[in-house]
Structure formats: structure tokens, C-alpha cells
Amino acid sequence: MSTYAWIGLGNMGGPMTANLVAAGHQVRGYDLDEGACAAAAEGGVQISGSIAGAMEHADAVFTMLPKGAHVHSVYEGEAGIWANATKDMLLLDSSTVDIETSRYIHAGSAQRGLHFVDAPVSGGISGAAAGTLAFMLGGEPELMDRASGFIAPMSGKTIVAGGPGMGIAAKICNNMMLFIDLMASAEGSQLAEALGLDPEVFWQIASVSSGRSWAQQTWYPVPGIIDTAAANNNFEATFRTDLARKDVGLALDAGESTGVRLPAATLAREHFDELIEQGLGDKDCSLIVKNLLPDGAVRGWSPEPANANQPAAG
């Protein structure tokens, strides 16, 4: 049995830690969100009131946080991970962050004689719950076997991407491809329906043809076709639009720094920006389908009236 410290118990961290507990490991978690802590506690996680408390006697310290700035904040300072880590611990970050943040944490850990692996994941909330996530590892070769052992109860596949920062590099490229594929599913689904094709029949055709993709199989933005689609639930988020926008932005930043043109990713960013400007950043990213029709009236989407939270006149 291993002892894990887990910083960040949100939509991904919560189910991931539950799988560790189910595998017989001890997990101590920390999160600023009381609701996330309560949900994780129901899964058997011991909630700590501080990062230092969560890290006490830990073998592995995982972070799963929304943005690079959050990773910086939990690593730095007297109450942070670096100040409370020992050389026996393995530090792993499974957040989706920018390349610069990952390199910074690698360098800062090495300067302190600590061991760090960037270990982002693919598979979403459903994969986190099922313990089938794909992990992409970046770090020194001698750390990979140890990291894979700590990851095993949460993963369906673990791949060593390369040296420091290569795990997050792979994740940024993969997520960029995902959101480009999502645009294809959104446009194809709406054009097929406008041409009079039965939505389920067209989905079946795409599923055995060259239009097939993970997004088409999992996030198809039409209600009543696949169980995992947010379109079945008024586009409540399985992957928030604002987080999708963040991930595409990371890819575009990387493209700018390397001189690689990314026109399709630029279009995906525009789709997400349009939803965010409408106040829909907390909705599922597959709601980009709304951008394709002149009146935005796509099946599965029922916006609240603009005055829903206002008292009636008179």
C-alpha cells in the first residue's frame, strides 16, 4: 500500500482518488472547494486542511489543477509542495498547463534535489471514474517505472512521451486535435440534419466511415444518439468551454513559439470565444454546435430566459 497526497479534488481529481482508495491505497487530499472535499471524502479520501498536512509521509504527491497559475501557487511558498517535499517523494503533475509552467516545475524540483514527472491525462471525467485514463509521462528515464506504478490504479494506458515536459507537450497537441475533431462533428451533424438525413442513421454511417473520431463517438452534439453526449443534458459540462478555450490557447502559444501555423486550432478558439462572450463558458464545449445555425436553435439546447432570475414586473 502506498500513501498519496492529492492536491486538487475537482471533476477529475475526485474520481481518480476514489480509484486509488478502491485499490487499497491511503489518499490524503487538499482542495479549497468544500464541496469537492466532501465528495472526495465520500470516496474514502482523508481530507487535510493544508498542503503540508496532505503531504505528511506521502510516497507520491499529485496535483490536478485547472491552470498553470494554480500549479505555481501550490508549489511555491512556505506552505507549498517544494517547502514540504522530501527527496523520497515522487512529485507528479496531471494538470493541463503551458509548456513553460511544466519546465519551471521540473527545473525548480531538480534544483532542490526533488523528483518530478509531468503526467497529464486523456479520457475525461468518464475515464477518470472508470480508471481507464491514458497518462503521458515526461521526465528523467529512471523515474518512469516508479511513476507508472503510482499511476496504475487510475490508468488504462501509460505511455512515456520523453524527457521533462514531453508529457504536457503530447497532451497539448492531443487536445488541439480533439477540439478540431469536435468542430468536424458539429458541422457534419448539422449539415446532415439540414439535408434531411436521419441523425442516428448518419451517426451510424460516420461511425463505420472516415468521419469517425473520438469526439464523434463520445461527444456527438445531437441528443438521443449516444449516452455520453452533453446534448442529452442541455449541454451541462463534461468538458467546460472555458477550459477547452484554455487548452486550445496553450497549443496556439506553442505554435507561435515554434513557428508552426495552426489555422484549424485558431478557428476552434474563435468558436469557444464566441460562446464565452455569450456567457456560456461554463457549458460543455460541444455547444459550439450552436454557433452554426443563424438563430442558435440547436436540438438539445434550451437556454434560460434572460429574465429568469429577475422578479416579475408589478
Rank of each mutant, 00 (worst) to 15 (best):
residue 267 L to W: 10
residue 23 A to Y: 07
residue 297 A to I: 02
residue 108 G to V: 10
residue 259 G to K: 08
residue 245 R to M: 04
residue 122 S to Y: 10
residue 141 P to Q: 09
residue 243 L to F: 06
residue 79 A to L: 07
residue 264 A to T: 15
residue 12 M to F: 04
residue 148 S to E: 14
residue 63 T to W: 02
residue 152 A to E: 14
residue 172 I to M: 01
residue 26 Q to T: 15
residue 15 P to D: 01
residue 155 S to P: 08
residue 153 P to H: 07
residue 154 M to D: 01
residue 131 G to Q: 02
residue 228 T to K: 06
residue 120 P to K: 00
residue 22 A to K: 15
residue 119 A to R: 02
residue 304 E to C: 10
residue 129 A to N: 13
residue 261 R to M: 14
residue 136 M to A: 12
residue 122 S to T: 14
residue 158 T to V: 15
residue 43 G to W: 12
residue 169 A to L: 02
residue 218 T to F: 14
residue 285 C to D: 10
residue 7 I to S: 03
residue 168 I to L: 05
residue 43 G to Y: 12
residue 176 M to H: 11
residue 76 E to Y: 05
residue 227 D to Y: 10
residue 9 L to V: 08
residue 148 S to P: 08
residue 30 Y to N: 06
residue 280 L to A: 13
residue 16 M to L: 09
residue 181 D to C: 15
residue 131 G to I: 04
residue 151 I to L: 15
residue 178 L to H: 08
residue 259 G to P: 07
residue 117 V to G: 03
residue 274 E to S: 14
residue 56 E to W: 05
residue 94 S to M: 13
residue 286 S to C: 07
residue 72 H to P: 00
residue 44 G to V: 02
residue 222 V to T: 15
residue 229 A to L: 01
residue 88 D to V: 09
residue 33 D to C: 09
residue 141 P to T: 07
residue 92 L to E: 04
residue 99 I to N: 05
residue 26 Q to R: 15
residue 46 Q to A: 13
residue 266 T to E: 14
residue 175 N to P: 10
residue 101 T to Q: 11
residue 9 L to W: 02
residue 221 P to E: 03
residue 197 L to G: 06
residue 79 A to Y: 05
residue 77 G to K: 07
residue 199 P to S: 08
residue 89 M to L: 07
residue 255 G to E: 12
residue 68 G to L: 09
residue 268 A to W: 01
residue 276 I to K: 06
residue 293 L to A: 10
residue 17 T to E: 11
residue 93 D to H: 04
residue 146 R to Y: 04
residue 235 F to V: 08
residue 228 T to H: 05
residue 79 A to C: 07
residue 166 M to R: 11
residue 164 P to T: 00
residue 187 E to W: 00
residue 65 L to K: 07
residue 172 I to R: 00
residue 248 V to M: 14
residue 207 S to Y: 03
residue 84 N to I: 05
residue 14 G to K: 02
residue 189 S to F: 02
residue 128 A to E: 11
residue 45 V to L: 09
residue 250 L to G: 04
residue 265 A to N: 06
residue 210 S to C: 09
residue 192 A to P: 06
residue 38 A to W: 06
residue 156 G to N: 13
residue 66 P to R: 04
residue 178 L to V: 11
residue 50 S to P: 09
residue 138 G to D: 03
residue 289 V to W: 00
residue 14 G to V: 00
residue 108 G to D: 09
residue 246 K to M: 12
residue 269 R to S: 14
residue 239 F to G: 10
residue 40 A to K: 00
residue 108 G to Q: 14
residue 220 Y to F: 15
residue 296 G to H: 03
residue 130 A to M: 04
residue 143 L to P: 06
residue 208 V to T: 15
residue 17 T to N: 14
residue 15 P to M: 03
residue 24 G to A: 09
residue 9 L to A: 10
residue 204 Q to H: 11
residue 205 I to A: 13
residue 89 M to Y: 03
residue 236 E to W: 10
residue 34 E to W: 08
residue 261 R to F: 04
residue 40 A to W: 00
residue 162 G to W: 07
residue 306 A to R: 14
residue 184 A to N: 14
residue 262 L to A: 10
